[in-house]
């Protein structure tokens, strides 16, 4: 399963979520996690059509089809429950 995270360098919510992801590295290592930057990866981000709130997590199945999307800051527990589960 693949997870795409869209964040930005200037975004405080993204900063704290990155810190929480680091705490969850054993769990996230089981997923293919691609981190895209809103400003520096514009072409890759464009197809996902993100809104104003960051970060955005998009969970994709093996065929690359979007299964779910989680928008905004999440606690470590919420990341486990909402993003990184099968």
């Amino acid at each position: 399963m693949k997870v795409v995270m869209i964040s930005a360098t200037w975004c405080p919510a993204c900063l704290i979520v990155h810190k929480r992801l680091r705490e969850l590295k054993e769990l996230t290592a089981r997923y293919s996690l691609e981190i895209l930057d809103l400003d520096f990866d514009e072409e890759k981000v464009a197809p996902y059509t993100v809104g104003k709130t960051l970060p955005v997590f998009i969970v994709l199945d093996e065929e690359g089809k979007e299964i779910r999307r989680i928008v905004g800051e999440r606690t470590a527990l919420e990341l486990k429950e909402e993003v990184f589960h099968d």
């Binding site: 360098t9 200037w10 975004c11 405080p12 993204c14 900063l15 704290i16």
Partner: peptide
């Protein structure tokens, strides 16, 4: 987490 983006961004860079 109430800092200006010009503080958040270098912190992100360092993280």
């Amino acid at each position: 987490l109430i800092e200006h983006s010009s503080v958040v961004a270098p912190l992100t860079y360092l993280m």
